[in-house]
Design a protein around this nucleic acid. Structure first.
Lengths: 151, 151
DNA sequence: ACCTCTCTGACCATCTTTGACTATTGTTTG
DNA sequence: CAAACAATAGTCAAAGATGGTCAGAGAGGT
């Protein structure tokens, strides 16, 4: 626990223990721990990832900030990872529908949510040649799986 | 929330909470918050857009004013049609988010649904050049609006 | 030595603030 | 009434204020 990364990590987690969400200014934290600002990005990228159960938002410019909140990781995390692996970067419309049905059955999505997503993944919504469509559909589904983790 | 833009935004919205329409003088507001007049234009252009559900009118010259009102579209079918028209075939990520927030406020989508859709419309989910991205995003949003009608 | 994790800094992206210049409308004057 | 003047608001580009990225240097362990 001697390196700055660990120290900053501990500092932030200690605050998160009390508050369910914190908002920091990158520059301020960097000054407080006497390091370069990008160090804060490193801490966040290695210690506050979605896999570790954190959701991070930020804004640049005047009045900018970095916001971190703890999220609940679903039990079905493994299912999502597996699906992600199965899908890879190619997905047909039928397969997409099957996956969505599965997600609804697992109660990871509501029926309405599945309908919305399905409509966005159907070929009519993806105006491009079929191979691109399938790649695009896979890409969108991958995004969905990631998003579900923080719902 | 220390930047002037957010402060002025909050001030105006707080008034709009009680009055359904406000009329301000640009110079006056600028003085009250000790900023340049064009700052007020910035606030209006970024925080009181049509996507966010505001209608702004103004007049120059003696007795000039800026009038802001919250747009109320009672019939949700009409709202969806209006949005569809506003969007056309070009949509930025920020505008998309604003529309989704609006849909949530109008209770046409749940928060979760909006988050899912937003994640699918963000640039990371649309691997193509920016112009195509915007066209694609508009296309997907149009699909969404159509889908909502039959949910 | 080699590998992995950490740290740094130059450069990039985005949002905000400012001010000079422009456009429009109302009022006064010749 | 037209021209000048006054009073507003709009536009836009540059500067300021943040946060993000990435490649390479540094440090610690095997």
């Amino acid at each position: 626990m001697q390196n700055i990364t660990d120290i900053i990590e501990a500092y932030l987690k200690q605050i998160l223990h009390d508050e369910k969400k914190i908002e920091i200014k990158r520059q301020e934290i960097a000054e407080r721990f006497d390091c370069v600002p990008s160090q804060i990005n490193y801490v966040i990228n290695t210690r506050f990832t979605i896999e570790k159960g954190y959701f991070v938002e930020s804004k640049r410019g005047g009045g900018g900030y970095i916001r971190i909140q703890k999220i609940v990781i679903l039990d079905s995390h493994d299912l999502l990872d597996e699906m992600s692996r199965w899908i890879g970067n190619d997905l047909t419309e039928q397969a997409a529908e099957d996956y969505l049905i599965r997600l609804v059955n697992e109660q990871l999505l509501t029926r309405r949510e599945a309908i919305v997503v399905q409509s966005l993944l159907q070929k009519e919504s993806l105006p491009m040649v079929v191979e691109d469509q399938r790649r695009m559909r896979a890409h969108l589904m991958q995004t969905l799986l990631k998003t579900i983790k923080r719902l």
